[in-house]
Amino acid sequence: MNSAQSQLSNQLNLQQQQGVKQFLTFIMADEEYGVDILTVQEIRSWEEITVLPNAPEFVKGVINLRGTIVPIIDLRLRFGLPSTDYGPLTVVIVIKIEFEQGSKIIGIAVDAVSDVYSIVEQDAKAVPSLSESNNCEYVAGLVNVGDKMVALIDLQKTMNI
């Protein structure tokens, strides 16, 4: 047990040294996005939500996460994508983001969870800055996994609400 653990942590260390990080990816409007798996707290299904008055459109409301009040962000709306209906298949990824003032726990509603990839961070390519659209600033970089492209999300910027 112990040796297995140390092996695992060794492996993790090694991976970190080589700049390898694991990313959880999810699907939104047929595109794949990734977040650092270490920020992910849990994955929940959509549940009834309490609406916050006068909140921006992408803030759907708050839920009770075992006694903590956690806001839920509709990432589609945040990224300027058309919204869809929420159903039992809608997934909420609960992530913990470190801000300067401390960490915050926020849920993001996405279409579906996809996969976990090991990605070398240096391989990420910058987003081409052609478009004036402000949605690109939320993407930290683009990486290729096989023949797919995954957009890595800059959580600090995205969730700075």
Partner: peptide, 26 residues
């Protein structure tokens, strides 16, 4: 319960609480 902990201040709302059925109420 604080809303500010994970979100920020909402005007007109001083905080939130959890009702008997587990729902959040402002």
């Amino acid at each position: 319960k604080s809303l500010e902990a994970n979100y920020h201040k909402v005007d007109g709302v001083s905080g939130a609480t959890i009702l008997g059925d587990g729902r959040v109420s402002l």
